[in-house]
Design a protein around this nucleic acid. Structure first.
Length: 426
RNA sequence: GGAGAUUUACCCAAGUGGUUGAAGGGGUCGGUCUUGAAAACCGAUAGGGGAUGCAAGUCCCGCUAGAGUUCGAAUCUCUAAAUCUCCGCCA
């Protein structure tokens, strides 16, 4: 949620910033509502103060044998007169909230305007592979290596679902174990959250109301519950409605969960296999920090994601997203994109973002500033570290051998019983 | 799924519809005493939002949440959430 004070101070400026994010809005109605609210508060509170004074005098007047009935009548009259104002005030405050809630976060000033086409590659690691043999795509490889069963996945569930089998399952789990062990080394706290969340959690994360149709809702089974689309939704709600002592920040977490997404819309033909599914595994990094710690935390998360990719030996790049390509809740996002040889393109495996205080405002997540003793909204940041199900196919393709086998990255071998190659089943 | 109980501040906890700006403990912090500590004693300890104001301050809302009854609600009624106990069901 955007700070209403910020809007009232400089409405045209905020309008321009939102426009950069593709959100056209005029704040004049909001300004009117806010003025109306102030006028109403003044009247309502005055009436209440008068009422409180009179009510408090009742025991005294009673003792002195005064005219209690007159007080009762007067208080009743005040209440009756102010009832309309109170109702109006409630309505106005609802309207203000309804105005603010759907607004996306403000993009950072240094972001380029526009959408995907204006994303800027800021680092490249490794070279796109050129194979001197006839290379296969990951769908073919996963089948011939016996790692993934797409046909049976579709049978038991439908399109967009697959089954990890045997060494495939082990490899997926090895990735997860590798990520987990790296995060533990860096002092992040391991969280396994519930996968079923209430709607409130979706609103705090900023995924609702906009993306309410993109999640698997349990409406009709359990009212107002849904299955999480990313562990971020759970992690941002960990400290909802809390005031964190300033000296405890930054709080660094990571969680493993599958991510369940409806991904409404069509699948491009290029996205066959495991590039986009209804369910994928992800380890999510998350930090709560102070206003001052925001930038350092962002850089740390980016470098952690990069480090994981480097240790796997993958070819990838880092992109700074343009204003319209970053998600609604976020102010700044860098994507880590892995090279997919069969497609000749890079695909996102991690998205590192800062929401600044946007999510914290929605969730009333605050901290007490150590020097001033005042409460402030926390800064929340998240980043995938990493989404295994994209890393998996990229890795299979990048590390395929002329004989059709797959060379397991060294860092994963401890979890693969020391195995070096996976050979075609037939 | 069914039945019951509970929800008050950092924790425990009292609280007959009206001086409740919430008793009393514990804890924490400060002090007295002590070479130091403990004990004892004394003192402090409600937070968060909002309105107004240059400020000091004043006012409004806060007893899980939301509605209601009432001149007046921590207290009565309804709804919801969470926790606990018992019963049922169960991969």
């Amino acid at each position: 949620m955007i700070d209403i004070k910020l809007i009232l101070e400089n409405p045209r400026d905020i309008e321009a910033k939102l426009a950069k994010k593709g959100c056209v809005v005029n704040f004049d109605p909001l300004i009117k509502l806010s003025e109306k609210r102030k006028a109403l508060i003044l009247r309502v509170e005055e009436a209440k103060a008068e009422r409180n004074r009179l009510s408090a005098s009742v025991p005294q007047v009673k003792k002195e044998g005064g005219d209690i009935q007159a007080i009762f009548a007067r208080v009743k009259e005040i209440s009756a007169n102010s009832a309309k104002d109170e109702e109006e005030l409630g309505k106005v405050e609802e309207e203000i909230k309804a105005f603010l809630l759907p607004l996306p976060n403000l993009p950072d000033d240094d972001l380029l305007a526009g959408g995907k086409e204006n994303n800027k590659v800021i680092h490249e690691y490794g070279k796109p592979q050129k194979f001197d043999f006839s290379a296969k795509d990951h769908v073919e490889l996963c089948e011939s290596l016996g790692l993934i069963d797409y046909v049976r996945g579709a049978k038991m569930s439908g399109h967009g679902c697959w089954v990890y089998t045997g060494l495939g399952a082990q490899l997926e789990w090895a990735l997860l174990n590798f990520f987990i062990s790296e995060h533990l080394k860096d002092g992040y706290k391991f969280i396994l959250p519930p996968h079923i969340l209430n709607y409130e959690s979706g609103y705090v994360a900023g995924q609702f109301p906009k993306f309410i149709d993109d999640v698997f809702s349990l409406e009709g089974v359990e009212p107002k519950k849904f299955i999480l689309p990313t562990a971020e939704t759970a992690l941002v709600n960990l400290h909802r409605d809390e005031i964190i002592p300033g000296n405890k920040l930054p709080l660094k977490y990571f969680a493993y969960t599958p991510c369940y997404r409806k991904e409404a819309g069509t699948y491009r033909t290029e996205e066959r296999g495991m590039i986009r599914g209804y369910q994928f595994n992800k380890v999510e990094m998350f930090q709560y920090t102070t206003e001052e710690g925001d930038q350092a935390a962002f850089e740390e998360l980016v470098s952690k994601a990069i480090s994981l990719m480097e240790k796997l030996g993958l070819t990838f790049r880092v992109s700074k997203l343009a204003a319209e390509d970053i998600s609604a809740s976020m102010a700044r996002t860098y994507d880590i994109e892995v090279y997919i040889p069969s497609m000749g393109i890079y695909k996102e495996v991690s998205s590192v973002s800062t929401a600044h205080d946007y999510q914290a405002r929605r969730g009333m997540i605050r901290y007490r500033d150590e020097t001033t003793g005042k409460t402030k909204y926390a800064r929340t940041l998240n980043g995938s570290g990493l989404a295994t199900s994209r890393v998996f196919p990229a890795m299979i393709e990048q590390f395929q051998q002329p004989d059709g086998s797959f060379k397991i990255p060294e860092v994963l071998r401890p979890w693969m019983g020391g195995l070096e190659y996976i050979k075609p089943v037939k």
